[in-house]
Simulated assay, not measured.
Amino acid sequence: MTTPAVPDLNIPGVYRIENISVKEGMPMILDMTRAVYPHDDVYGQYCTVQDFIDAPPDEVFEYLSDPRSLEEWTYSMRGFEETEEAGLWISDDRIGDNTKIYTRTVSSPDARTVDYHCAWDQDKHLWMIYLMRVIDAQVVLNKPGSVVLWTNCHHPFYDENPYPETAPSDREPWVGDFWELFYAGHLMELRNLKAICEHRYAHGQPITPEWMR
């Protein structure tokens, strides 16, 4: 069964072989390819980090899907306690001095996606969304293991605290003040995740530790 012929998409900004030849399109592609990119062009609106982990994808996914794993592999989230609302956790984000952070995990075993819905100071609007996906490396790299993709979107609330009345009076920084450092910071944390998973798997230990079970 073949798909029906697609009509001409006469839409400005849509480039397809039907309306622009390879010879015409190549200079456009080359013009978008640069040796040096401004930081804001790369990390202004979205921040994505990725890495290979030499451990089975199902086990890496299981570990990530429990928000308490953040206690181990993130730089600054500590002291997780489940609130009275099932699935909603509160912890300290020590990068923000006296800051409480709320976290809810939304995961899909079939797609191996793990999304952390978070917010500083209040739990009514979890607007900081950390999007993660665990991929079977056998499929994409032809070797055993996992590829982890992690993306953040620059929500407008990063620019200004929408709930200033919930913030500690003695706290100076706002989470958005660190946006330009998100790539480096998240890459460090992803490497923490890699080191933990690979160490446990290589030593025959469960990646999800007993204290989380």
Score class of each variant (00 low, 15 high):
M77T: 05
M77Y: 08
M77P: 00
M77E: 06
M77I: 07
M77Q: 08
M77C: 02
R78I: 07
R78E: 04
G79E: 09
G79S: 02
G79K: 02
F80H: 02
E81P: 01
E81C: 03
E82N: 08
E82P: 05
T83L: 05
T83E: 10
E84V: 07
E84F: 07
A86T: 11
A86V: 09
G87F: 08
G87H: 09
W89H: 02
W89D: 00
W89V: 00
W89L: 00
I90A: 09
I90S: 05
S91D: 01
S91A: 09
S91T: 07
S91I: 01
D92P: 01
D92Q: 11
D92F: 06
D93Y: 11
R94E: 14
I95V: 06
I95K: 04
G96T: 09
G96A: 06
D97L: 09
D97V: 09
D97P: 00
N98A: 10
T99N: 11
I101P: 01
I101K: 03
Y102I: 12
T103R: 00
T105L: 04
V106I: 13
S107Q: 11
S108D: 15
P109Q: 11
P109K: 10
P109Y: 10
D110G: 14
D110L: 07
D110I: 11
D110M: 03
D110N: 12
A111H: 08
R112A: 13
R112M: 15
T113C: 04
V114T: 05
V114K: 05
V114W: 12
D115F: 08
D115T: 11
D115I: 13
Y116V: 01
Y116L: 07
Y116P: 00
Y116W: 13
Y116H: 07
H117R: 12
H117L: 15
H117K: 08
H117T: 06
C118M: 14
A119F: 12
A119Y: 08
W120E: 14
W120K: 03
Q122R: 13
Q122K: 07
D123L: 04
D123G: 06
D123N: 15
D123C: 14
K124E: 14
K124R: 13
K124W: 09
H125Y: 15
H125D: 15
L126W: 14
W127Y: 14
M128S: 07
M128L: 15
I129V: 15
I129C: 04
I129Y: 08
Y130F: 14
Y130G: 06
L131F: 10
M132V: 03
M132G: 04
M132Q: 13
M132I: 03
M132L: 13
M132A: 05
R133S: 12
V134P: 03
V134W: 06
V134I: 14
V134K: 00
D136K: 01
A137P: 11
Q138L: 02
Q138T: 10
V139N: 02
V140G: 05
V140L: 04
L141T: 09
L141H: 13
N142R: 07
K143Q: 15
P144L: 08
